[in-house]
């Protein structure tokens, strides 16, 4: 255990050190500007102290972000509009719903591609084309169009998440469902297995390792989709809204704390998939 913890802590320590140094570098001009207008000269230590304690720094220092996160999670009721937990929850709901829809869509398309020759020839180019369109360009359209037909709130964001997350699932599952070799398929034929039996007993279990790897990528993509989906909604709620509001008012500390929350949320969600993967594959004797 210690052997794996120490390298991780060492890397984190180095990153934080670089972060502090970068904060000094980026925030010094503003600190000097302030000092000049107040007609005081700063000692080096005063200068450094100032760069780590500005209200709207170019780059907030780690402890500033940590305090902001503490104040907006532990210190606030989770029902408060200022609570990051509340905003994370909003984003997570859209992420998980979009992920579920995307995985289902990806799975269905993969089955179609594997079993239907017409779909095999026609669907994949469209799937790939769909991912070449910048999500930032298409997200507002989806929000606006769905809003016009009376759908708002969670679902439009989830649909943007779905748009991003179905792709890795399609690609992974097509590969996974095709992973049984010719001999295994011949074997099924010698037992006169039906198409359904071949799918349930051979293709599906064989595709499980591929499915979980795809789902991890899909979950991360889904979170990006949910955050992007929150940007054009007028910054009502969610981590995306916090990012947008922060950038409107130059609240860099708020932006960074929302960013770190998003990263933590992604880590938790991908970690959950990883845990399910380990348990499932272990029970299947594959890990």
């Amino acid at each position: 255990m210690m052997r794996s913890v120490f390298p991780v802590l060492a890397v984190v320590a180095v990153l934080i050190a670089i972060w502090y140094a970068a904060a000094v570098w980026l925030n010094t001009p503003w600190a000097l500007d302030k000092a000049k207008r107040a007609e005081v000269t700063l000692s080096t230590s005063d200068l450094i102290a100032d760069t780590w304690a500005q209200d709207k720094p170019k780059l907030p220092a780690p402890h500033q972000v940590a305090i902001e996160i503490w104040n907006t999670t532990v210190e606030k009721k989770i029902t408060s509009k200022r609570s990051l937990i509340y905003h994370s929850w909003i984003t997570m709901s859209a992420t998980v719903l979009g992920f579920a829809l995307g995985t289902a869509l990806g799975f269905a398309l993969a089955v179609g591609i594997v079993y239907n020759r017409v779909m095999d020839m026609s669907v994949m180019p469209w799937v790939i084309a769909s991912q070449t369109i910048p999500i930032l360009a298409i997200a507002p359209m989806i929000i606006v169009v769905l809003n016009a037909v009376g759908i708002s709130g969670l679902l439009p964001k989830a649909l943007i998440s779905m748009y991003l997350s179905f792709f890795p699932v399609v690609v992974g599952m097509v590969k996974g469902l095709r992973s049984p070799d010719a001999m295994q398929l011949d074997q099924m034929r010698t037992w006169n297995a039906s198409g359904g039996q071949e799918f349930i007993k051979l293709r599906l279990p064989a595709s499980m390792p591929y499915l979980f790897t795809s789902m991890k990528i899909a979950m991360a993509a889904s979170l990006v989709g949910a955050i992007v989906g929150e940007l054009p909604t007028g910054a009502v709620a969610g981590l995306g809204a916090r990012l947008l509001a922060g950038s409107y008012y130059g609240q860099t500390v708020q932006i960074w704390s929302a960013l770190l929350m998003a990263a933590a949320l992604a880590a938790v969600l991908v970690g959950v998939i990883g845990a399910i993967q380990r348990v499932t594959l272990k029970r299947m004797g594959l890990a």
Partner: peptide, 20 residues
Amino acid sequence: RKARAYGYVFQAAGLYPWRT
């Protein structure tokens, strides 16, 4: 084949790794 008249043993054992 449909009457399951034969058992076929392939060159490789081809056991499913996810089954005991």
